[in-house]
């Protein structure tokens, strides 16, 4: 990427962003971090009725090292927080995080001694999906929004992270 460093956001770099982002956003490999009932809606999003593969994201990888998107699906408690952080740290850049359902987003109605009040206290989050649990349409909407977000990124953005 020597040319981009020298010339900054030139015509050539913008075209490279387009090409790279096109590849990234239509081939999400997800890591499903499923802890609660939201997992059922997550699974139904994968099943044939809603068919997440129409959006190029049909491949869940159960190893964080092979995944681009971390789906945190369900309640995360204080005991589990270090595990979530570790899974996030093990993922390679570029990586994104989706907070699936109100429990992952804000703790939901579990405002108590055991529950993390939103996973953004532990790791950075790109997209939040509301709902208890969210409908599969909401999940697909979030996926499209994530694709749009990835499409706006530049390859330079993550260079020195």
């Amino acid at each position: 990427m020597g040319l981009e460093t020298a010339l900054g956001h030139s015509f050539l770099t913008t075209r490279l962003d387009e090409a790279v982002n096109w590849g990234r956003k239509y081939s999400f490999f997800q890591y499903p971090f499923v802890t609660a009932c939201c997992g059922m809606e997550y699974m139904s999003t994968f099943a044939s009725t809603y068919d997440i593969s129409r959006f190029g994201a049909e491949y869940p990888r159960f190893s964080p090292r092979q995944a681009d998107v971390l789906f945190v699906v369900g309640t995360v408690n204080e005991k589990l927080a270090p595990v979530l952080k570790r899974v996030y740290d093990q993922m390679c850049e570029p990586k994104w995080v989706v907070s699936f359902g109100v429990c992952a987003t804000s703790g939901g109605f579990y405002d108590n001694y055991a529950t993390v009040q939103g996973i953004d206290k532990i790791i950075p989050v790109d997209i939040y999906i509301p709902g208890c649990p969210p409908r599969p349409e909401a999940v697909l909407d979030a996926l499209i929004k994530l694709q749009e977000k990835v499409g706006r990124e530049s390859v330079l953005d993550r260079k020195y992270r």
């Binding site: 204080e78 005991k79 927080a81 270090p82 952080k85 001694y113 993390v116 953004d120 206290k121 532990i122």
Partner: peptide, 14 residues
């Protein structure tokens, strides 16, 4: 008598 809002995070929160 455990405080309702008492939190004891296992790891540092942002």
């Amino acid at each position: 008598d455990y405080p309702l809002k008492k939190r004891q995070p296992r790891m540092l929160h942002k």
